[in-house]
């Protein structure tokens, strides 16, 4: 697994016209191979794509295709086996300041109240507490958790816990938010609601979001750009620029346009499968 492998040039990069914004995250020939006792397990085949400033990029792919690995690489939690990742033009070698992460489980510390959980990155990074406490309270209000600041996580429902986790990812005002199937464990009603709320939050904070999911409707609903991946070892089978307007009521999911994008995602996923079998 060296850099000699073929590079997949995405539609977006080929056309080039759709990008006026500058890339915040550049993924250049990045591959990942895990070394286990049974030998080397390839997780990601070389990937090449950029994530632009303010973009809502959704990576969609089957379970175990290396989506989570990709996020960990961007966060600097894992070193790539080959290639490099640049965030804000700096090569990522270790965890860095400009990232907030939300995982599938909320991972709130049970001994901390909601506000204390949200403030954790501030404490760790040694940022001014008073200033950021106001920001934390604003965020908590924005996701509708006001009144629950002093509750313990176990007193909250799953959806509320996940909203607190989103506040925690945003509290130190990172440029990038990485989300690893954040709503995967929630029921569909809560999920719809949180999807709507997340779009709203994104519109108000102009973060760059990289969101991983295996739900096609979720991917299409949230994204400005979709990266479709094949099963392990993951590679990009399609990159789709969303044509949906920025304003998205939930029933946009019944429009022709939405279904057309969803269809193309499904095609991309199928292509990934036939490639492997």
């Amino acid at each position: 697994m060296k850099q000699t492998n073929l590079k997949i040039v995405s539609d977006a990069q080929a056309s080039g016209s759709a990008r006026s914004a500058r890339p915040v995250i550049e993924i250049k020939g990045v591959s990942k191979t895990y070394k286990t006792q049974d030998g080397e397990v390839p997780s990601l085949r070389p990937l090449d794509f950029d994530i632009n400033e303010g973009e809502f990029l959704v990576v969609v792919g089957p379970s175990g295709c290396g989506k989570s690995t990709l996020l960990k690489l961007i966060a600097g939690l894992l070193p790539p086996s080959a290639g490099e990742i640049r965030v804000e033009n700096r090569v990522v070698t270790s965890p860095h300041r400009d990232v907030g992460i939300v995982f599938q489980s909320a991972l709130l510390l049970p001994w901390r109240r909601v506000l204390e959980n949200v403030m954790m990155p501030v404490e760790v990074k040694g940022l001014p507490i008073e200033e950021y406490r106001r920001r934390a309270l604003d965020l908590i209000k924005m996701v509708g958790l006001d009144g629950f600041e002093r509750k313990y996580p176990w007193q909250l429902s799953g959806g509320m816990q996940q909203r607190a986790a989103i506040c925690r990812a945003l509290v130190h005002d990172p440029k990038i938010v990485l989300m690893d199937e954040p709503f995967g464990a929630l029921d569909e009603i809560v999920r719809d609601h949180l999807n709507e709320q997340l779009l709203e939050l994104w519109a108000r904070t102009d973060k760059t979001i990289c969101f991983v999911t295996h739900s096609i409707p979720e991917a299409v609903y949230l994204s400005t750009k979709i990266v479709v991946m094949s099963p392990r070892p993951g590679r990009v089978t399609d990159v789709i620029e969303s044509t949906l307007p920025k304003e998205r009521p939930l029933d946009i999911r019944e429009t022709e346009e939405f279904l057309a994008i969803a269809h193309r995602v499904r095609e991309g996923l199928r292509a990934g499968h036939s490639y492997d079998e």
Binding site: P95, H96, V99, G100, F103, H172
Partner: peptide
């Protein structure tokens, strides 16, 4: 949880 460790590490 390993994810919890990752989360803490991602906060530097």
């Amino acid at each position: 949880e390993p994810d919890m460790m990752d989360l803490a590490r991602s906060m530097e």
